[in-house]
Structure formats: structure tokens, C-alpha cells
């Protein structure tokens, strides 16, 4: 391979993005892998009274108190079960550590820019504001979630809304 060629490959690779793919029910979602701190099991969550139902509570992550959000409840999935496969993806957004409950984590995918399609206007459950696009991979479709925007949004009630500060 010539040098010019490898340079072009590197440039193209730089634009490729890696995503962590997880499942909610039968659907596949993905978030930017750089936001992910770790993946752990779902256990020992302390309920917080008077919080929205999708906020499961808080847990102890090596001395840090971390809120746990169940995206399945947030996205109105019908079956919400906690089992051996249920995992918590611990993400770092806006200087905060938040755990999100999902049905399972499948793999890490690299998407090239042309594999990312713009998200169409969605329904009310998941506003397209919170999506960075749709990833098409052969016959699979990944919903690319902008986890930053989603978790800091007012409707997630995770952060003190700016109006009250």
C-alpha cells in the first residue's frame, strides 16, 4: 500500500465513529463509545421517593452516588424485566456519572459517515432532538442516541432545570 493511500485511509478512519450497541426489547440502539465509562450489572439500587418512574434510584459506584435511569420505562416499553441479562451502562455526560438500564449490550460497531443517516421526525416518545441519526448496517438499523442531550434534557429531570437556578 502506498503512503498516500494509507494517509487517505487514516483520514477516513478519523471520521469513523465507534458506537456501543445495546438492546431495548427487540430494538437496537447505540451511543457514542467515548461517553461510556463502564458496564455493570443491575443491583442494589436505592429508590428515590417522588422521582419520575424511569428514575430507578441511586446506587453506589465505588463511593460515588450514581442515579440509575431505566430507558425502557422512559421509552414506554411494555415488558420491563430485571434479570441476569439486564445491565447498566455507566456513562459520563456533562461532568456527571449516570447509569442507564438496558436489556443487553451486544457489541461495539464502527460506522462510517455514509452509514449514518439523518433521523426522520419522530413521534412524541423519543424526540428526534435526542438522536444523532440512524445507523444502517446491512439489514440492521441502529438508533443512534445523543446521550448527552437526552440525559441533560428537562424531561429526564436528572439535572436541576436551568430555569430554577
Amino acid at each position: 500500500m502506498s503512503q498516500a493511500n494509507s494517509g487517505a485511509v487514516l483520514a477516513a478512519e478519523a471520521e469513523n465513529r465507534e458506537f456501543l450497541v445495546f438492546s431495548l426489547g427487540d430494538e437496537e440502539y447505540a451511543i457514542d463509545i467515548l461517553k461510556v465509562q463502564e458496564i455493570r450489572g443491575y443491583e442494589n439500587v436505592t429508590r428515590i421517593a417522588n422521582a419520575p418512574d424511569f428514575i430507578k434510584g441511586v446506587t453506589n459506584l465505588r463511593g460515588v452516588i450514581v442515579p440509575i435511569v431505566d430507558l425502557r420505562i422512559k421509552f414506554h416499553f411494555e415488558t420491563v424485566e430485571y434479570g441476569g441479562q439486564t445491565v447498566v451502562i455507566v456513562v459520563n455526560v456533562a461532568d456527571r456519572v449516570v447509569g442507564i438500564v438496558v436489556d443487553g449490550v451486544s457489541d461495539v460497531m464502527t460506522l462510517t459517515p455514509d452509514q449514518i443517516k439523518p433521523a426522520p421526525e419522530f413521534g412524541v416518545t423519543l424526540s428526534s432532538d435526542f438522536l444523532s441519526g440512524l445507523g444502517s448496517l446491512d439489514d440492521r438499523m441502529l438508533v443512534l442516541v445523543d446521550i448527552d442531550k437526552l440525559l441533560t434534557s428537562d424531561e429526564m429531570a436528572l439535572v436541576e432545570s436551568t430555569s430554577s437556578q
Binding site: I48, A49, N50, A51, N60, V64, I65, P67, R96, A157
Partner: peptide, 18 residues
């Protein structure tokens, strides 16, 4: 342990502990 570091103020709760 502060609850507001990663979450928010919770009415009736001042902080958390382990």
C-alpha cells in the same frame, strides 16, 4: 455523600451515604 454531584436536589432528602 452529595446527591447533587450526579443527580439533583431531592425534596426531603439532604444527602446520601453508603
Amino acid at each position: 455523600k452529595n446527591l447533587e454531584d450526579n443527580y439533583r436536589k431531592v425534596p426531603g432528602i439532604s444527602a446520601a451515604t453508603i
